[in-house]
């Protein structure tokens, strides 16, 4: 045991020294000098984690960043803890997956705003889809709406943030006795619908496509402006006559005092990722998202527009 403890200590010490002792590269341009901590505030299996992992995979295959990139899943407190850690304690090698599902609770519950972070990129826009189990009595969107308008109690579920937002809009406009069970990620919500605890789930195409392809779930309607591609070809809420159209952007931010050099570096890296075929075909097309890459300087305004919507309420 003594040997064991000693060896373990040595390994640990080595890791710490390695992490702390490396100096900046000398050729002027900034590059990460240690392992990159990439925070993701939703649990694995959901849209945010698939997004994060897809980018890291491309960075690895293209060899864009020399250091290792570690994903840190911090789902505590609906993501608030992870967000505060990045904004408060982050440095140039700390980045955070940040979509409007994160921005909304930040602004509305936690009393923060975009000034706590430095936007680095917007990568894509995602849609939301309402799914039911294969054997659900809701054959079409119209069945669901008729049931809701008829005052039937319907148990729905989904992830945090943007999914709650969509639910509230549906409840407001369609009406009825709708109830929402909030999960930590779309992955957890899918568990609930597969087990029959909820009747309708709000999910992102990326996280639910495997279950649609396997025939476990089928799409009822979508909340995007236009119809999505197969297998998510279902009527939009607009088509059905409701003024509901939500866009989920998927972006990346760093802590508020990230250095300009680091911002430039990361913005450049994500631009390169967005230009690869692996991104366009392997992620966007396969997971049914729209490419919408914006570099750091444009991402700020884009995200700010969303913040204005959330603060207006």
């Amino acid at each position: 045991m003594k040997k064991l403890v000693l060896t373990s200590l040595l390994i640990l010490a080595a890791v710490f020294i390695f992490a702390a002792g490396q100096t900046e590269t000398s050729d002027g341009a900034w590059a990460p000098d240690r392992d990159v901590q990439w925070y993701c505030t939703s649990s694995p299996g959901g849209g945010s984690s698939i997004f994060t992992q897809s980018i890291i995979e491309i960075i690895k295959t293209e060899g864009l960043v020399d250091q290792e990139i570690l994903i840190n899943y911090k789902t505590d407190g609906g993501g608030a803890v992870g967000r505060r850690e990045v904004s408060g304690k982050g440095n140039d090698t700390t980045i955070l997956t940040f979509n409007n599902g994160d921005l909304q609770p930040l602004v509305q519950i936690e009393g923060g705003d975009l000034d706590n972070f430095t936007p680095l990129a917007v990568m894509a826009t995602d849609g939301q889809v309402l799914l039911v189990p294969a054997d659900s009595p809701f054959k079409t969107a119209k069945d669901f709406i008729a049931a809701a308008e008829g005052g039937k109690r319907i148990i729905m579920g989904g992830s945090k943030g943007d999914d709650v937002n969509l639910f509230n809009k549906i409840k407001e406009q369609v009406g009825g006795d709708l109830e929402y069970l909030m999960s930590d990620s779309t992955g957890d919500a899918l568990t609930q619908i597969l087990g029959g605890s909820i009747e309708v789930v709000i999910a992102k195409p990326a996280a639910s496509i495997a279950f649609v392809e396997s025939g476990d779930l089928r799409p009822l309607m979508v909340a995007t402006r236009d119809r999505l591609n197969d297998p998510f070809d279902a009527p939009t809420l607009k088509e059905l006559g409701y003024d509901i159209e939500l866009t989920v952007y998927r972006g990346i931010v760093g802590p508020k005092d990230m250095s300009d050099e680091a911002v430039a570096f990361w913005s450049d890296i994500f631009g390169k990722v967005a230009a690869t075929d692996q991104w366009k075909d392997g992620y966007l097309k396969k997971k049914i998202l729209n490419g919408n890459h914006l570099p750091a300087n444009e991402a700020i305004g884009y995200m700010q527009a969303f913040e204005d919507i959330y603060t207006a309420k």
Binding site: S43, P44, G45, S49, Q53, Y73, G187, L190, A210
Partner: peptide, 13 residues
């Protein structure tokens, strides 16, 4: 494809 635990989640990743 659904992790049963935190560690399972990382394995899934």
């Amino acid at each position: 494809g659904i992790p049963g635990s935190g560690t399972g989640a990382v394995l899934l990743g």
